[in-house]
Computed example of a mutant assay.
Amino acid sequence: MKIYKFSIAIAMLCAPIIAQASTYPNKQVNIVVPFTPGGVTDAMTRGLADKLQEKLGEPVLVVNKPGAGTVIATNYVARSKPDGYTLLMAASALSIAPHLYKSTVTYNPEKDFSPITLVAAVPHLLVIDSRISAKTVSEFITYLEKNPNQATYASSGNGTSNHLEGELFASLSDIEMTHVPYKGSVPGLTSLASGDVSMMFVDVAAAKPFLDSGKVRALAVTTAKRSKQMPALPTVSESGLPKFDAMPWLGIVAAAGTPKEVVEKLTEALKEISVDPAITAQFSSMGLDPVFNSPEEFSTFIRDENNKWAGVINKANIVVE
């Protein structure tokens, strides 16, 4: 009898969740962006929100919660009600921040979220000072081996994705390199163009003016596959470092425990949006590659990213507090 009563109690508790899932959405959906308004992620999310609103039939608004290297927004969504009405436009930092900001991160990237789908890849380029004669990654590694004083790379700050990409490059090429952090990509690129450093990993949009000027040269893209933005450019992995794979990304997650029916509805809507010509054109203009995968694939991807960057950060002993 006690077991029977307990089962009824559980059923009564679950009933509202099941009912809400079956009618989802019936009110406003918020997508939390961990960056300030006006940036690429914010603009991309607003375009996506407009399309998602058309699919869901309810308002979809963007809420900006910047700060602490995306930690404020990510902690917020991890603690939100798991009903699909509070989503996070997660960035690569989801799997990086826990290993950098250990005193402020309260979420576990693998346990505290229900992955929906990847949304965009943010291809980074390996760019070098154009006065260096190397035309390929292999030639550049040989150059650094012969000129160890030139083994320097710029980043847009400690703990950023291009900092970690530099550490991954140094580890895989077995070259001791000096990291020179700047306050943003443009100052780093300016320093590279002036010959103060030898290389930098940076997004296509930021690099383009410097590439057009001829002051820096792109050798490869960081992603496992060639980028739609620069399809003629080889990947780092096919150009001398076969284990190199670094894809800055953006994707949508909800709080862990979000009903399966809600996750499926969001996934299906975003799958259709990912091939919408207006969205693909917008992404291309921002230097982004549209990406779509299933919640299961995204979950595996987050786990792999977590393990990879934990290894890089721990090996390089990088701490940002």
Rank of each mutant, 00 (worst) to 15 (best):
V32K: 02
V63W: 05
L233D: 00
V320D: 01
M12V: 12
A90R: 04
E238I: 12
W249Q: 07
A232H: 14
N306H: 12
S294P: 08
H179K: 06
L88K: 04
A170K: 00
V71M: 00
D196P: 02
E264Q: 13
M199A: 03
T190N: 01
F298R: 05
T300V: 15
N26C: 14
I313L: 06
I3D: 14
L61N: 12
T106P: 07
E305N: 15
G69W: 02
I128L: 02
M286I: 14
T190G: 01
M1V: 15
V29R: 03
H179W: 05
I252V: 15
H124C: 08
L270K: 05
P242M: 04
V180P: 00
A43T: 11
G188A: 00
D289R: 11
V236E: 00
A254T: 12
P109E: 06
T160F: 13
P123H: 04
K243N: 13
K146F: 11
N147Y: 01
W249F: 11
E58L: 14
K146T: 07
A121W: 02
P148K: 00
Y107I: 00
V137G: 01
A206L: 07
K55Q: 09
T280A: 04
A206Y: 02
F301P: 05
A120P: 10
R217V: 08
V32L: 04
S185V: 06
E268S: 14
E305V: 15
F244A: 01
W249I: 10
D289Q: 12
E54I: 15
D50C: 14
T300L: 13
E268V: 15
Q20K: 08
T190S: 04
G184T: 04
T86Y: 06
D245F: 03
K265C: 13
Q282A: 12
F201N: 01
S95G: 13
P148Y: 03
G287A: 09
Q282K: 10
A90I: 02
G195Q: 01
S156T: 10
I132S: 00
G57S: 12
D129F: 02
L52Y: 09
G195A: 05
I273E: 00
V253K: 01
G257C: 09
A78P: 04
I302F: 09
L266G: 05
T86V: 15
S173W: 00
A15E: 07
T23N: 15
T258I: 08
D42N: 13
V253G: 02
P231T: 07
T142Y: 05
V262T: 09
I116G: 08
A218Q: 05
N147V: 04
I3V: 14
Q20H: 11
P16A: 12
I279M: 05
L61E: 13
K51C: 08
V127C: 04
K2P: 06
S138A: 15
Y24L: 15
R226M: 06
N158E: 11
K208F: 02
I3A: 13
E261G: 11
P295G: 12
G257K: 06
S294L: 07
S274H: 06
A21E: 05
D212R: 13
N307A: 15
G57D: 09
I141C: 04
T223M: 08
K183C: 12
F140C: 03
V127A: 02
R131C: 04
Y76S: 10
